[in-house]
Amino acid sequence: RNRTTFSTFQLEELEKVFQKTHYPDVYAREQLALRTDLTEARVQVWFQNRRAKWRK
């Protein structure tokens, strides 16, 4: 699988949710996936990576 390149819009949407919660539930991830045209799995992995970055 190739690396996912996120658009500016997608990143803004993802970051917006991350500001509210670092652990969105499955429903929130599904909604975000639909809004950003990503799969729920991509959204989940983005949050994992974003939390790792945030901890540093």
Rank of each mutant, 00 (worst) to 15 (best):
V45N: 12
L34Y: 04
T4W: 07
R29T: 13
T4G: 10
R42C: 12
V17R: 02
D25T: 08
K20T: 09
T39Y: 02
W54S: 12
V17N: 09
L38K: 08
Q44F: 10
W54D: 15
F18S: 03
T36H: 02
F9M: 13
T5N: 12
Q19I: 15
K53G: 11
R50V: 01
N49E: 09
K16I: 03
L14A: 01
V26N: 10
V17L: 14
V26K: 10
N49K: 08
R35C: 04
D37E: 04
F6L: 15
Q48T: 07
Q10W: 01
L32F: 08
P24K: 00
Q48H: 11
T4C: 15
L14F: 04
K20Q: 08
D37A: 15
E15I: 01
R51E: 04
K56M: 03
V45W: 09
Q48C: 09
F18W: 10
W46Y: 04
F18H: 02
R50Q: 05
V26M: 14
T39D: 13
F18L: 00
Q10D: 02
A52G: 08
F9Y: 12
V45H: 12
K53M: 10
D25P: 08
R29S: 05
L14P: 03
E40V: 12
D25I: 07
R42Y: 09
N2Y: 10
W54K: 08
T8W: 03
F18Q: 01
N49H: 05
V17P: 00
Y27L: 12
T39C: 05
V43F: 00
F6R: 05
T8M: 06
P24F: 00
T21P: 01
R29M: 15
S7Y: 05
Y27I: 14
A28H: 05
W46I: 00
R35Y: 06
H22N: 04
R29K: 03
A33D: 00
Q48N: 10
T4M: 09
H22G: 03
R51Y: 02
R51Q: 04
E15V: 03
A33L: 02
R42W: 05
Q10V: 07
A41M: 09
E13M: 03
E12P: 00
R35L: 09
F18D: 04
R55F: 07
R42V: 14
E15D: 06
R55L: 11
T39V: 05
E12L: 05
F9S: 12
S7T: 15
A28I: 14
W46V: 00
F9R: 09
W54V: 10
E30Q: 08
